[in-house]
Write a protein that binds this DNA or RNA. Structure first.
Length: 474
DNA sequence: ATGTGC
């Protein structure tokens, strides 16, 4: 049953949904009026999330909010573990640990341009993508998958697929420590086995980009970025493995929920207390998928490095790797007290402020790098976290879809879109024409407006804008 | 997002 939603503008870029039973906290939506056009369904989802047991602060929505499974995409919700706070797989999403990695080349666009076609052809061959099986790693046995589930990109680097800096500049040092592979079903393992080091499809991509604008030179330099520089951005997740884990644990929680006296306004919000067998099982499986997602991005980085070295004589250094679909146990101050919270970020990026102890030492004083993938014809952004801590140090994650895949594919054919992009100087290596058409830039909100609203709401600060030179897609 | 459906 959906709740009717009132929206009160508290300040520019900040709207509030007053709590009405059974909401336990208000909804807080960071956006402009323009960005909220047609957002009614997702605002109902923000209100639904506010009913969850143990939720603290507010049910938050980022400026790229749109409708999702149970929780809106662009949603942030934290629950107090000691107060019966719940964890919900719908608050993470099907693509557990979907995230973005940015690598910076030791070359600028002018030097690099002659090598671009050969690099794109090399990436076309080296990057497994599209639906179904295929990955850069052919696993030697189930033991190796187990090591990925525990070791994440740390394991990939140990096996020679990366360098030490890759771990320093990756969220959680390349692996989360609380994975429990025993909670990853046989079916999830089977799906994951043949997809290690693959991009997937839909909005996932690998792009060669160029830094088109720098808004803060000091912070950009600390992150390893300069104007004109060539970069590689990778956006992908945990493929069929994460999807199956979500499916399995939603079912388990749906069955167990009544035992804890929990009722939710939407069955897709299935949840149990963090401190329950089902809650712990899900968080263990989710952490294993998080590690799989990092290993996935690490292996694709290594494949891209090989191509850049051979075709352009260029090195790639990791700027940062951050997930935007994850729940984390974090300590935050709420109502004057430090509390242990389960922070769900679904289509929302963690954005730790300057000085946060979990940040790598060489960027700590500048805040956490936040990576925002845009759409093919437009731009992507690098942001940084700011002091303040609203929404538990979180910000937006991307442009946000406005046209359905079906409607998008009716506006343009894949071949037309490639011709248009190539004419504007962007090389395109699609696997599927249909998949390319579904990702036409018109299908998305203006990523610049999303970033401006996020900064205007005090969630982050803009560091650099990147534009695509070449796109590799499923 | 996804062996694009339960």
């Amino acid at each position: 049953m959906a709740l009717a939603v009132d929206l009160v503008e508290d300040s520019p870029y900040r709207f509030r949904i007053p709590p009405r039973a059974p909401m336990r906290v208000p909804g807080v939506v960071f956006a402009s009026r323009d960005l909220l056009a047609d957002a009614e369904q997702s605002l109902e989802q923000v209100a639904n999330v506010a009913t969850l047991p143990g939720i603290v602060g507010a049910s938050y929505a980022m400026p790229d909010v749109h409708w999702g499974y149970g929780f809106p995409i662009g949603g942030v919700a934290a629950t107090d573990v000691a107060q019966g706070g719940v964890v919900s797989p719908g608050g993470v999403g099907f693509d557990i640990s979907c995230g973005v990695r940015l690598l910076a080349a030791d070359a600028d666009g002018r030097q690099f341009q002659p090598a671009l076609p050969a690099v794109m052809d090399g990436l076309d061959r080296a990057v497994p993508r599209g639906a179904g099986p295929g990955g850069v790693w052919r696993l030697t046995g189930p033991g190796q998958l187990e090591r990925i589930l525990y070791g994440g990109s740390r394991y990939a680097v140990e096996e020679g697929h990366g360098e030490e800096r890759d771990l320093i500049r990756c969220e959680d040092g390349g692996a989360v420590g609380d994975a429990d592979a025993a909670q990853v079903s046989a079916r999830a393992r089977e799906r994951g086995l043949a997809q290690v080091g693959s991009l997937g499809s839909a909005n996932h991509f690998l792009e060669v980009q160029q830094v088109a604008e720098v808004y803060d030179e000091t912070v950009a330099a600390a992150f390893g970025l300069f104007l004109g520089q060539v970069c590689v951005m990778i956006h992908c997740g945990s493929r069929g493995l994460g999807h199956q884990i979500c499916t399995d644990h939603v079912r388990a929680m749906d069955r167990a929920m009544a035992r804890y006296g929990i009722t939710v306004p939407d069955r897709q919000l299935a949840c149990t207390p963090v401190d329950s067998p089902q809650g712990r099982d899900y968080l263990g499986a989710m952490a294993a998928a998080a590690n799989y997602g990092r290993a996935n991005r690490q292996l694709l980085s290594h494949a891209a490095r090989g191509v850049f070295r051979r075709a352009a004589g260029t090195r790639l250094s990791l700027v940062y790797d951050v997930s935007h679909n994850l729940a984390k146990i974090e300590t935050h101050e709420v109502g004057g007290r430090r509390r242990r919270l389960c922070v769900h970020r679904k289509g929302a990026t963690r954005a730790f402020p300057p000085g946060h102890p979990e940040l790598p030492a060489d960027v700590r004083e500048f805040g956490q790098p936040v990576l925002i993938p845009g759409t093919m014809g437009t731009a992507s952004y690098v942001l940084t976290g700011v002091p303040g801590g609203d929404a538990f140090f979180s910000t937006c994650h991307g442009a946000g879809r406005v046209l359905s895949r079906h409607r998008a594919a009716r506006t343009v054919t894949g071949r037309e879109l490639r011709a248009r992009l190539e004419a504007s100087g962007i090389a395109v290596r699609p696997k599927s024409w249909r998949g390319l058409a579904e990702e036409t830039p018109e299908a998305y909100k203006d990523v610049s407006a999303v970033v401006a609203a996020s900064e205007g709401a005090g969630l982050c600060r803009t560091v650099a804008r990147l534009v695509p030179l070449g796109v590799v897609k499923g």
